[in-house]
Simulated scan of single mutants.
Amino acid sequence: MDAYLIAIAIITAIYVLMALGLNLQYGLTGLVNFGVVGFFCVGAYTTAILSQKGVPQYITFPLAALLAMAFAWPLGLVSIRLREDYFAIVSLGFSEVVRLVATSEGWLTQGVQGIPGIPKMFGTFSGTTQALAVLGLLVVFNLVAIAAMLRIVRSPFGRMIEAIRDNEEAVKALGKDPAGFKIQVLVLGSALTGLAGAAYAHYIGFISPEQFIPLITFQIWMAIIMGGVGRISGALVGAIILMVFLEGSRFLRDVMPFISEVAMASVRLGVVGLALVLFTMYRPQGLMGDFTRK
């Protein structure tokens, strides 16, 4: 049971990193990014490919974040001036292109066969000790990310991106260029997502294109909506709530044994979807949102 709980905590910490990145992009700036899983995939494959060539992890992790940033920059240049709904479609298309490239370019990614044997983090340890070391590292990553976001929020840059979220036309009237700020935010948020992808690859030890489907993106969206859009604490709490629903629903078959294993996957998605609907109806500002608003 201890090993299971630690494993859940590790995946939760990876999701928190992605939720923090999306919260910076959407919660603080208003960027509707439906391509989260694309940057997650870039980070995972970057570290997996380099690790297979013998590059140490202390180099592959920052390179995974940097390459995710590199992918985000041209995407931002091309599409950031589009309306919010069009940018959402473009970002979703980007994530699918990344997944298709990972599937078709077998010379680089080994295609649908995936990349096995990715070195584990803290591979010199074993068992619970190794898992706790991984969890500790991810906690450090999250604490650093939270500290950086708090600093951003309290800075002139943070006030500017919040102004863009609230009234972009007013920002333009003041002579500022919202597009430049949006690109910077897209790049910074994507770095966190790429770092999360690197951590995921090294923790799981095997990646394939089927692991990077759009469902991951919408799970991260569920997390920040349930936790509270625009709240750093909301990204943390939302990811925990999401994981409670995802993992807790695994035990539904104990109370509903008449449902087959195959059908249970749909039931689990239904439970998570119902939770999101209920949050939207009765707590639209999220669990950590403004309690004075209804």
Rank of each mutant, 00 (worst) to 15 (best):
F61R: 02
P56W: 12
V229S: 03
V271L: 02
A64G: 08
L100S: 09
E84Y: 09
I59R: 10
G111M: 09
L269I: 06
L137Q: 05
N167Y: 08
D290T: 15
F125M: 13
S266M: 15
L252C: 02
V139G: 05
Y203T: 05
P156A: 03
Q285V: 12
I232M: 10
Q184G: 13
T46N: 09
L92W: 08
E84T: 10
T280M: 15
Q52P: 03
L252F: 05
A64D: 06
A88M: 06
Y282N: 03
P62C: 06
W73Q: 06
C41F: 12
Q184T: 11
A44R: 07
E84K: 11
I89L: 13
L278Y: 14
F279H: 04
A48N: 12
G234C: 10
P116W: 11
A191M: 00
A170P: 12
G289T: 13
G117T: 08
Q184N: 07
T217I: 10
I207Y: 07
I115G: 13
T12D: 03
V255Q: 01
L100W: 14
T193D: 08
A179L: 07
A265C: 13
A147L: 14
G43N: 08
I80E: 02
L252A: 04
M226D: 00
R159D: 07
A148Q: 02
L242W: 01
G248A: 06
L276P: 01
S51Y: 06
Q110A: 15
G111C: 06
V140N: 10
V267M: 04
E168M: 12
I152Q: 07
I80V: 09
A198Q: 10
Y45L: 02
G54K: 00
N33F: 14
F251H: 10
G270N: 10
S260H: 05
M69N: 00
G114V: 09
L192S: 05
G189M: 11
L82S: 13
E210P: 10
V78G: 14
A173M: 14
